[in-house]
Design a protein around this nucleic acid. Structure first.
Lengths: 334, 334
DNA sequence: CTGAAAGCGCTTACAG
DNA sequence: CTGAAAGCGCTTACAG
């Protein structure tokens, strides 16, 4: 792991100065084609590649992006954000240095520690779509937010397009002939529940249908879904339900079972998340909207890289990424 | 992000040489207590901390561990391994540099790229408990495996204690009065299914009970659980099932429902994984064995750090970490 | 197009 | 206990 050959050996073997070797590798100076050839050949023979640490000593760029993840272990899809970011970053010869912090812990000592490593920019991924206060030590101009935005919107951020995703779900139900489409959600005031609900209501109104929403005060979970669905069925007889999340949808499945309602025979259900091992494992398979986590990670990395390169036309403000419908067996034509 | 104060400014402000400042911070040389005080005071006033990149230039240690994760996004708990490793690493002032590779892609160019960053050691986390071939470029003496081991066992590795975990599950069922306890699992020959099955059979035999195992040729999934459970119930009338995984257990729930069997009234079920949003969301809540992912990540990091420190008594071979039972509502006294 | 030299911010023998 | 000096492996003006 790590051999001892340096720029000096390459210079010597190819009969040029280390300056020229440096030029050849960085592509910065002028080097004749024949010299380039000889240098690269010598480098190949010697198994040389420039030491990124030494490089970082002199150059502005360090070749490393910081990745701050809130509660990386909590949600199953945080890994997808990491994966997306990691793949584009590595294509550009960059590395990801990663730390895990708790939600709302902007004074975590790990953050200065990460910054001390002279990362070129940082990606901050929130645990779920929400407003965050950027820790003081983070430079707003060298940070990109994922699934998050600041009150003043002064930090570039990439978020899911809640409106588009919810509209996709509701329209699926409308297009499939349903009239009595209810929405179950949570009361906690986050952008996701707020925007999805608004999009649901708008889509219903556009179709000349009456919106019916039941919200649970519990956190997004199967239990919250049971809570809201139970109350919903006491008052109404919907033919379809648009659930805020797959977890709520699971609760709907459970209540439907208790009530002797078959899915999709008596009740169609659409969720949001496409949660692994849930949406596909449930019976019948849940039709749901896939959140674009990997894509968000990818975009965040691209933006971070454009910050490092100081691209003039780089993304500003908030970019909303679209999700897409994953059709399984929980929706039936009415 | 990053201020321009260096060791020189601190030396000047505290009236000593940079050598002394370096000694004070590294704790390596001899520095009088009063000098130390002055140095640290000056450093605090200036907001100085040693540049890890410059440090890495001269010292053997770089303060960074590599973390190679197979399919970080695939399984929900890979994040727990990362989280465990990250937390111990950061307590020791180290950072984690992370890449994501596919299973069986030992020639991924990202690995040399990671090594080129001169990481002090690397943690390699497999997607699931299995045998791996270590990529050639990885030094067996500076690598620690998580959820994996090599054919020759020449790399330190930390794995879950499959036998202990399966025994915990089966004994729970035995202690609770069950006699007809079946095991459903998968045929694919991995250490997890092999060792859990063996432990199940041993525990049954010890209790004077007859083991009954049905295995599905499908990948671990609810569908595989349905497949194995359906066949099981054609031939037998078990009062309890020990499922290889929570996902198989989900399939058991589904088959029980079809058959009009209530859980836990007619059938007790125990799984393995404690898969988030599944084990706790299913109705009734699934009693299952928690895999020690976070603990495995933690241990791997501790071992990696002991390698960096060249501890004489550092862990060798394979360390098996125990899991624990998470009791919910799927088991009833018989 | 090529190279000698300074220097990035530290650590590490070594001398005092 | 303290400090002057060399050097880690590169990059970057600058001169030729």
């Amino acid at each position: 792991m790590g051999n001892g050959v340096g720029i000096r050996e390459v210079a010597q073997r190819s009969g040029v100065s280390i300056t020229t070797v440096s030029h050849a590798f960085s592509g910065r100076g002028q080097v004749s084609e024949s010299t380039r050839q000889r240098v690269f050949e010598a480098a190949r023979d010697l198994g040389y590649s420039p030491d990124p640490v030494a490089r970082a000593m002199r150059s502005a760029s360090r070749g490393v992006l910081g990745f701050i993840s809130e509660e990386v272990a909590t949600l199953p899809y945080s890994g997808e954000i990491v994966r997306g970011a990691q793949s584009v970053v590595s294509q550009h010869g960059f590395m990801l240095m990663m730390i895990n912090v708790e939600e709302h812990s902007s004074d975590d000592p790990q953050i200065p520690q990460l910054l001390a490593q002279r990362v070129d920019a940082v990606i901050y991924a929130a645990a779920h779509h929400r407003e965050v206060i950027l820790p003081d030590c983070l430079d707003p101009d060298r940070t990109v937010l994922v699934d998050a935005f600041t009150p003043t919107q002064n930090v570039v951020s990439v978020v899911p397009n809640e409106t588009q995703m919810a509209t996709l779900a509701v329209n699926k139900l409308i297009d499939t002939g349903h009239k009595r489409i209810a929405h179950i959600t949570v009361t906690s005031p986050n952008p996701a529940s707020r925007e999805r609900r608004r999009a649901y209501e708008a889509a219903m109104l556009r179709a000349g249908l009456e919106p019916i929403t039941y919200a649970s005060e519990l956190d997004s979970s199967a239990e919250a879904g049971r809570d809201a669905a139970t109350r919903l069925f006491e008052d109404h007889k919907p033919s379809a339900i648009f659930a805020f999340s797959d977890r709520l949808a699971m609760g709907v499945y459970q209540v439907a079972r208790e009530l002797g309602l078959s899915i999709p025979g008596d009740l169609s259900v659409v969720g949001v998340d496409n949660m692994p091992f849930v949406a596909d494992a449930v019976l019948p398979g849940l039709t749901t909207v896939q959140l674009p986590h990997e894509e968000m990670g990818r975009r965040a990395a691209e933006i971070a890289l454009s910050i490092v390169r100081r691209d003039a036309d780089r993304q500003q403000g908030t970019e909303a990424i679209k999700g897409w419908l994953v059709e399984r067996d929980s929706v039936k034509h009415q």
